[in-house]
């Protein structure tokens, strides 16, 4: 057991899998000799060499297209899209190519690859380098989508994503890279499609993802300490596949559901979960499902404005307290 940063967990997850399987290769902009713009790939180039850790030009379509062609013919590539906002530049591969090739070819072709991308706000990069775009990827049949919140989950889900035979979008949160957590020694392998109950509670369920997880946990402590509300906090972790059983089970226990989402309001991941719970857990609910999200705006660069936009512990506490106290 050792304390590891989220950033170093990315490196450990990738290197664990590259040591295990020579078919795992890695490509992206500045990932090699430079060690990544977030320093989340430091040392990989030195350990695995320039043929397995390949620096590319600023060519997002070529990065994802090449990853796909390599995956279709036998490799297990990891492709980095530096900022998740840049997914829009190469969305054809994410929307039209990778997720449909198995289906269109009647299963003749598989596409086992991972797209790592720096997602989310909190680092004052403004509207084109700060978005939470997990819902852009969640809406496409044929993709898997994960967004870990802790170092140990980064390693385990990275390993699971690399070993999976489908295209997996791996959203790393930029504002979490410096955060730390306890990580066991040895190989770590997790399971895609599993949510984690991080704090057991009885009065309400709070679902959160990535950066919103530590904020939801902080809010839960305040709710318990200051307002007598015992919240259960569930880290969704994997949007596709979605662990609806853990979510529905938690709602069955608490009777109340709140989602905490960094994405802008419309069609955020919580909307889909709210719909599932309304369909299948309605009679367990003691009150309306409430979504706590970033408002439906682009993100500002100014620190006080960005802070105002994202859900934080105070806002989560305030919303839940007022809703729960009717």
């Amino acid at each position: 057991m050792a304390e590891l940063s989220y950033r170093d967990a990315v490196i450990r997850g990738i290197s664990q899998e590259m040591r295990r399987d020579k078919n795992v290769v890695f490509l992206g902009e500045d990932i090699g000799a430079a060690g990544g713009v977030f320093k989340a790939t430091v040392g990989l180039f030195e350990e695995f060499g320039p043929l397995r850790v390949r620096d590319t030009p600023i060519s997002e379509q070529a990065i994802l297209g090449a990853a796909m062609g390599a995956a279709m013919t036998g490799l297990r590539p990891i492709a980095e899209i530096m900022f998740s906002d840049f997914i829009a530049v190469c969305f054809d591969y994410i929307a039209n190519e990778m997720p449909k090739i198995a289906y269109m070819t009647n299963g003749q072709v598989k596409c086992p690859l991972v797209i790592r991308t720096g997602n989310g706000a909190g680092v004052r990069f403004g509207a084109q380098h700060s978005q939470s775009v997990e819902n852009w990827t969640m809406m496409i049949p044929g993709l898997k989508v994960v967004a870990p919140s802790s170092p140990v989950d980064v390693i385990g889900l990275m390993a699971a994503a690399i070993r999976d035979n489908n295209p997996v979008i791996f959203h790393e949160h930029k504002a979490l890279y410096a955060t730390k957590g306890e990580v066991p020694d040895g190989e770590i392998i997790d399971t895609l499609g599993t949510a984690k109950i991080l704090r057991a509670g009885t009065d309400c369920t709070i679902l959160a993802l990535a950066l919103m997880v530590p904020r939801a946990l902080e809010a839960a402590e305040i709710l318990a300490r200051e307002h007598g509300i015992n919240a259960e906090v569930v880290d969704v972790r994997s949007l596709v596949p979605l662990d609806t059983q853990t979510i529905l089970g938690s709602v069955a226990k608490t009777g109340r559901l709140f989602t905490v989402e960094e994405n802008p309001r419309l069609l955020g991941w919580g909307a889909e979960i709210a719909s599932i719970v309304a369909d299948e857990g309605f009679w367990d609910l003691d009150g309306p499902i409430v979504r706590i999200t970033t408002p439906h705006i682009p993100l500002p660069a100014a620190d006080h404005l960005e802070d105002l936009a994202l859900p934080n512990a105070a806002r989560i506490v305030d919303k839940i307290r007022r809703v729960m106290n009717g």
Binding site: V25, L51, R52, Q61, A62, I63, L64, G65, A66, A67, M68, G69, A70, A71, M72, T73, G74, L75, P77, D92, Y93, N96, E97
Partner: peptide
């Protein structure tokens, strides 16, 4: 779309 994909297939051949 398939020009980069063909590059990826060629990269696999080169790498292996």
């Amino acid at each position: 779309a398939h020009l980069p994909i063909a590059c990826g297939s060629a990269w696999r051949a080169q790498y292996l």
